[in-house]
Design a protein around this nucleic acid. Sequence first.
DNA 1: TATTGTTATACTCTATAACTATA
DNA 2: TATAGTTATAGAGTATAACAATA
Lengths: 162, 162
Amino acid sequence: MQDGRAANTTNTTIAAKCKVKDEGLRQFLGYHIKRAYNVLRSDLTKSLEPLGLRITTYSSLILIVDNPGIRQSQLATNLDIERPNLVVILDELEQRGWVNRERVESDRRAYALFATLSGRQVCETAIGIDRAHETRLFSGLKHAEIKSLTAMLNKIERHMGE
Amino acid sequence: MQDGRAANTTNTTIAAKCKVKDEGLRQFLGYHIKRAYNVLRSDLTKSLEPLGLRITTYSSLILIVDNPGIRQSQLATNLDIERPNLVVILDELEQRGWVNRERVESDRRAYALFATLSGRQVCETAIGIDRAHETRLFSGLKHAEIKSLTAMLNKIERHMGE
DNA sequence: TATTGTTATACTCTATAACTATA
DNA sequence: TATAGTTATAGAGTATAACAATA
């Protein structure tokens, strides 16, 4: 089964007329997670683009809206983003007028982050878009399936800390 | 542990003393898929690195080993990789001596891809490493859970074609 | 005209080292 | 000295347009 190239003169291109064999890849759960993630990322990116948000800026904005005064370091930790990468994300959010950095008086090294009114508004809109995006892509799954899927993914994610 | 400072004047830094609220993000399945994928990607990348393989070169190599004579365009389609990006992946595999591009006589635009002996050997080793990696990270999941997880992810993935 | 592989390019995400200013 | 934020930089993945050779 491995080697289709019986003769160069008769049929050099067996793979071309057969279905591609991908059992070797499909045996790995990680392969399916990657493919599902790519589909989701691509669709959500396109869905958020009209708002001027990327997935990273959107995720950051949600946490800032829900946690007024959060520090950059806390945000980075919670989003699993390296601090240097967060800087440009916040620059972008600040430039759009959606987030403010405010010096913390008690520790002048740190910045506390606050969403502006328009930041909270665009965040609400984005959440609605995200919900619609997931409703669309997860329509084949029952509510209970989504819950168990979430639980299993959390188990995988937490496994690195052990 | 995080925050010892009680009050600024009253309390400008509420988030600093509370656990960060991430329910807004955690309501989305896509967020959990992304985090699980990042953990998996990072661990598999490190695991394959000693072999000189990246995830993309490794995935390509598996498909070439399992489908001798496959064309680049077929490979790109099956891996959901754009053709231009596949070129550098194959350059790398060819440079390592793991894959050969062979002109197809019946269509001289195309290349048929074949794994070399050492290509098949490194692929076998990599598959063993991948299995160990998944065994490690999925140890919290039962076999039946992994199967249903795979099925659900496939549903999500296929939803884009509709 | 369409397709295969290629080049060039660009954008995003991720990752690390080193700097500054505060603590 | 240690930490918060920053700068600079590099690697990897992804995406599109345009080209040459071939169909």
